[in-house]
Amino acid sequence: MQRMTRDSDEAVGRLFLDLRDDGVLFAAMRFVGDMFVGFLHAPTRRLGLAGFPILFAAGCDRDLSVLSPAGPAAQGIATLWWWMFWGGAAIFALMLALFLWLLLRPAAGRGIPARWWIVGGGLVFPLPVLAALTGAALWLGEGTLGGTASTQIEAEARMWQWTFRYPDGSETTDVLHLPAGRDVEIVVTSPDVIHSFWIPRLGGKIDAIPGHANRIVLRADAPGEYGGVCAEYCGTGHVDMSFTAVASDDWGRE
């Protein structure tokens, strides 16, 4: 019980931090979301299965988790996700409740004219929801995707390793050095098959397609290590094609 309280305290504490960073609504959504997953996870911990790294209640601090964003792009998407999750859950509950109500209470909805059902449920209800959602996603996408940055790093994906080339001409393999707190543009290429560059905690993925150079702008808010993987199946060595992104304050001065 004590543990539960402490988790709640943590969650409340983070609520205030979140309020400062992301605005009230997101903070509230994420607060409820964390409580929810924390609640889900509580029994496993009470059963002494705490051997698993504490994940959700501790802010989902997993290396590859989309739900523990560490940069603005990933942060925005996580916000979008929690909105969609709760909205989707509500719509799901509504639809199922309607179905079961009509099935188990025959004649219950007979007073409602057919037109109301079809026009209301088929147009009036989904259209504004979809418009709001696509609008928000568009706005988010315009803000975080497709920009440029003054710092460029080349990422070459090949079967099955990553080579990173920096502005000063140096190269690293399977370790990507990034400046912390600053936008970087990663130029992703491949000499063989299609791979996909993905650091879940920093932002979305971008494919490495032979013959094309694709770009993605990412930013790590704080120094630290972030896991990265190849997300597109690229042959039998696909699973081994992971890398680590190391963000540091003294990048470029090493």
């Binding site: 099935l103 909805g109 057919a114 209301g120 449920g121 088929g122 568009l138």
Partner: peptide, 29 residues
């Protein structure tokens, strides 16, 4: 993206037509 989201509309029209059918009739299990 917009086209993909819009597909939800004809789907919803169908689902709500089914619900309307159930509402108008006497569903049996």
């Amino acid at each position: 993206s917009i086209a993909s989201a819009l597909v939800a509309v004809p789907t919803a029209v169908q689902i709500f037509s089914w619900l309307a059918t159930m509402a108008a009739g006497r569903p049996r299990f």
